[in-house]
Nucleic acid binder design. Structure first.
Lengths: 127, 127
DNA sequence: AAATGGTATTCCCAGACAGGAATATAGATC
DNA sequence: GATCTATATTCCTGTCTGGGAATACCATTT
């Protein structure tokens, strides 16, 4: 993966927030909407941008799509994601996202990584 | 310094090359031209871009302008520059720049950091 | 003052991209 | 099949940016 490509992905605030939150674990689009408090188009487009360049992976899980950081990131990506987390550790704007994420997790018990039941997810709404 | 700003600076190949070479020490524009083998406008514009955002510092030295990494980089910048050097250590395209830089240094004995003589630099050409 | 060398700026164009509104698609439920 | 939820895509617009040609600017030398 080209280093320039990585930086192109990192040079937008929304995408930084997405990746920062994703470091905590996989998440679906509607959760991102809640955590970032941004409209669906915006979230979906930026996730698409990241996905097209290999910065995130996605898999459909019933009705919704779960995004995650790559299972096997390149060395450059791994280094930069670590650097990113490090640099954002004290940034209040990004910490607010994490706070909303934790609030979400406490009310929503869905395990985003559990295997998908054969025919149905068994739940109508995400959270 | 905003982290996003740093990434915006890093998301162009030419600017990556500039910063990578700059890590070896201060350099003037005409040297960059030789090291990167790119036209003057391109070099000058990208250096201007980096300078406007605080990623590099510049000072006139007689007839030419010497660029350098900031004397006191922010924590985020320092971390990312280190990460950058680390990621590029094996990239042949960037190593070629360093090779040209060393060739330049062997033929050009100007000390870019030496204090500027009061009235004249004493040399007509840069190298 | 004129000439010269080094650097920055302006003007132009083409492409990328962010944002939002509206619409389309996919899967699940009824 | 109709409906609903979740997600993606299309269309539009404004802004930013990269590249190059030409030119302006600044300092030095003659």
């Amino acid at each position: 993966m080209e280093l320039v490509t990585i930086y192109q992905c990192l040079c937008d605030l929304t995408r930084l927030r997405l990746l920062h939150v994703l470091a905590q674990g996989p998440l679906c689009v509607c959760d991102f909407q809640a955590v970032l408090a941004e409209p669906q188009v915006k979230i979906s487009k930026h996730l698409g941008y990241l996905r097209a360049r290999g910065l995130v992976e996605a898999k459909r899980r019933g009705n919704w799509v779960v995004y995650a950081l790559p299972a096997k990131p390149s060395a450059g990506l791994r280094a930069n994601l670590a650097c990113l987390q490090d640099c954002l550790a004290d940034d209040p704007r990004f910490q607010r996202d994490l706070a909303r994420l934790r609030r979400l997790e406490s009310t929503c018990a869905v395990d985003k990584l559990a295997p998908v039941p054969a025919t149905s997810v068994g739940r109508k709404r995400c959270c």
